[in-house]
């Protein structure tokens, strides 16, 4: 088991690094008080990203009357979240293309799950008792489960044993069962990847603690609770990653951090489903995504 853990950590060390622009963009986007100008500043120094952004905004999905050639207008028009989704898909395509075979998942499932979590986390963050930047919650959601892509191959062949162990009640949740088999779970693998990629602290915290939000550093706890609940919404609505769906515990202390009612949740489910379909439709029109 210790050797499997070491092998997984070795795989993480060999994961292709994100482009410098992607790292800078994520660093800017994870700051509480960032604005659109900060995003523009990063994108304009990267010719490929500038071209991609303009191509995106001028695509059929946005149905513009006349073409936009100014980067700032293009970013304002497409919205920061759309841009982050685009950059992350391209930056980590190797991981997003993973078929999650170890979870009996399917290709694209991880991307869909992370995207729905991001959209839900953003809306849930609006209900946080302490102010949380909703765009940061979105970015955290987009990345939160990347550790699954890392450990998926190592879980192949263990699924029956893992599910049996859960059904016997030997483990509290799927992450516990992953750790029992591999010596590391997807949140720990995600955190190691966040360190390898030099991701900012709020993002790394969400990757590590989205199933144990009470353990997140105090200053990011509300943010991580938003991601925790966003993850639940994604699973409840069927945008899951395979065999682990619904096999995690809800931390019921969410009520101390997020002021949410039954009706709020129903509306969030409706709105995120609609946001998800719109975003997917627009991204699917982009060549190479």
């Amino acid at each position: 088991m210790a050797s499997t853990r070491n092998n997984i950590l070795k795989v993480i060390e060999e994961v292709k690094l994100l482009s410098p622009s992607a790292v800078r963009l994520l660093a800017v986007a994870s700051k509480k008080d960032h604005d659109l100008k900060d995003i523009v500043r990063v994108i304009k120094h990267d010719a490929a990203l500038t071209a991609k952004t303009l191509q995106l905004v001028n695509s059929a999905a946005f149905s513009l009357q006349s073409k936009i050639s100014d980067l700032e207008r293009a970013i304002a028009y497409s919205g920061e979240n759309f841009l982050l989704s685009l950059v992350m898909t391209e930056a980590a395509d190797m991981i997003y293309d993973c078929d999650l075979a170890g979870y009996d998942g399917h290709k694209g499932g991880l991307w869909d799950h992370n995207l729905l979590t991001a959209l839900a986390a953003k809306r849930i963050a609006e209900l946080s008792k302490e102010p949380v930047n909703t765009n940061v919650a979105y970015t955290c959601g987009l990345l939160h489960d990347l550790g699954k892509a890392i450990i998926s191959d190592f879980l192949k062949g263990s699924l029956t044993q893992l599910l049996a162990s859960l059904e016997k009640g030997e483990m509290p949740d799927y992450a516990g069962a992953e750790e029992k088999i591999l010596g590391i779970d997807h949140t720990q693998a995600g955190y190691a990847l966040a360190c390898h990629w030099n991701l900012p602290e709020p993002l790394a915290s969400a990757m590590r603690y989205h199933h144990e939000p009470a353990k997140a550093p105090k200053k990011y706890r509300s943010l991580v609770y938003a991601v925790h609940l966003g993850d639940m919404v994604a699973m409840m609505t069927g945008r899951d990653t395979g065999a682990d769906a619904m096999r995690y515990q809800l931390d019921d202390h969410y009520i101390d951090f997020i002021k949410i009612t039954e009706n709020d949740l129903a509306q969030i489910i409706l709105d995120t489903d609609s946001d998800f379909r719109t975003l997917k439709e627009s991204m699917d029109e982009q060549p190479g995504i």
């Binding site: 609940l229 639940m232 409840m236 769906a245 619904m246 515990q249 809800l250 019921d252 009520i255 949410i260 009612t261 039954e262 949740l265 129903a266 489910i269």
Partner: peptide, 14 residues
């Protein structure tokens, strides 16, 4: 209708 245990009766939509 998979279950989520929520003592606050908010997330148990299933």
């Amino acid at each position: 209708g998979a279950k989520i245990m929520d003592p606050h009766n908010i997330f148990n939509i299933g």
